[in-house]
Amino acid sequence: MTSRIGVVTYPGSLDDRDAARAIRAAGGDPIALWHGDADLPDVAAVILPGGFSYGDYLRCGAIARFAPIMEQIVARANDGMPVLGICNGFQILCESHLLPGALTRNDHLHFICRDQTVRIETTNTAWTADFSAGQEIVIPLKNGEGGYIADDATLNMLEAEGRVVATYVGTNPNGSRRAIAGITNARGNVVGLMPHPEHAIDALTGPTTDGLPFFTSVLTSLLASR
């Protein structure tokens, strides 16, 4: 049971197969979850994948947060179940109030897809334990609305509490406040990340294999918490 990690498919999810592939590459068992199901099956962690849920025609993630399956995911997350939201998944986590702040349109107003250097700022989360603090990695970034925004008090709090998970190195690709690429909740089990580690698990199809430790980390932390 500790290796069963759910991946939610919403209408418009795109990187759900990639997330499942990454879980498999890390040694876990991906379990497909359907947005419309009210019951969460027996999973130890959940990934909300990238994509354009409901077309993102309203605010990104604003409709997906009301999907039937979200009620149990939010409840379990509040009980400590590891949840990783990637890109659209990050947006859904913010809309669900599992994470503070919001994601806004890139400051240059274009969708951007590129290999991005990010620095891992904390290893004290369920999803980053296998990194070393300050480690710089290269993983794909691809978003149109990836600018992280929150008020200064929240940003100060995130930094003071060590809840900034990753920051952009070099040019800030989307205008994120304080170059934030990912954050976590107070407990460290819920992580939202704008770049895509699931696209960097195999040098054949990604720029690096730097994304893999996100997925091994959760398996490690699940084993440790048994």
Partner: peptide, 13 residues
């Protein structure tokens, strides 16, 4: 080309 997603589906070589 940076405005196009080349990574999705995870099979782009």
């Amino acid at each position: 080309t940076d405005q196009y997603d080349r990574y999705v589906l995870g099979n782009t070589v």
